[in-house]
Amino acid sequence: MRHILTPLDFSVSELDQIFDTAADIEANPKKYANACRGKKLATLFYEPSTRTRLSTETAMLNMGGSTMGFSDANSSSVSKGESIADTIRTVSCFADIAAIRHPKEGAAMVAKQASRIPIINCGDGGHQHPTQTLTDLLTIRSLKKRLNNMTIGLCGDLKFGRTVHSLIAAMSRYQGIRFIFISPNELRIPDYVTDMLDEKGIPYQENVRLDDVIGRLDILYMTRVQRERFFNEEDYVRLKDFYVLTKKTMRRAKNDMFVLHPLPRVNEISVEVDNDPRAAYFRQVQYGVYVRMALILTLLGIKVNDDGEVIEEGPGKLPL
C-alpha cells in the first residue's frame, strides 16, 4: 500500500506520471467527475488549516467521492487523549483514504504504521508537507515548462518552514538546480537540509538580503513567518516583517521569474505585487487541487478511460 509522507516517497518518474495526470485533469475535468464515486476521504486535522483541508476535500468531491473528519483536535476523540495510532486504526474502518495534519513532527509516520488505508501527510509540525510540495512542483512545471536547470530562491522562515524543507528535498532530485536561501540568521535553513545538499553536491548559498540576489532567480518562493512555531512572542514580533516583497524589489527580478507562496500571506508580499503577471501564488492554489486529485487517484490505484469510466482500481484496504 502506498502512502505519501514526504515527496521522496515517489520517484521522479512516478511524480512525472502524477503531474501528467494533473495536467489531464486540468484539461479534461469532466473525465474525472466520477472517478472516486463511493470512496470516502477522512481528513484528520489536529491543527487548523483552511486551505490544505479544503483543497484536499475539494479534490475528493471533484471526483464524486465524499469526505468526513475533524478540523480541530478539540472536536475529536483526541481531546479525550486518544493516540494517533488508535485514531487511525478506527478511521481505517470507515474511510478509504486519510489525510492527516498534526503539530508534531513525524505524526504521519505513526499514522502510517497503524493504518490499513493510504495516508496523505498534510503537514507534520515543522517537518514535511508533501502535498504542498507536489503543488509547488506542478506549478513550476506548468509555468516554466521544466523542473531542471534553474535557480530557486527561498525567502523568509527557512528554519520552521516545512514547505521549504519538502520543496528543497524534492527539487534536489532534478538536474542543474541551484538554491539561494534568504533568511535572517535566526531562521536559517536547518543543518539536516544543508547536509543533504552537501552530500549530493548541489550548490547553494545563504543570504540575508533579498534585493542582492533576486535578479539571479528563476523562482522566488516566499514564506510567512509563522507565529505558532515560536515559543517566544518577542522573537516573532521582531522577525515577522523582516521581508516584504514590493513592486520596487520586483523591478530587479527577471521577466520570467515567478513568485510562489504556500499562502496564507500576511505582510511578506505587498498586495501591489498581486497584479504583476509574475505573481503566481493564486494559480498555485488551483494547481494544488489538480495535484491532490491526481495523488488520490494514484494512492487508490484508480485509472479512468477517456469516457470517464473506472477501468482499474487498487486492492483496497489491508485486512484487519
Binding site: H102, P103, E105, V110, G125
Partner: peptide, 10 residues
C-alpha cells in the same frame, strides 16, 4: 516537537 515525545507505544 517530535511525535515520539507524546505518542505512547511507538
Amino acid at each position: 516537537r517530535c511525535i515520539t515525545s507524546i505518542e505512547q507505544g511507538v
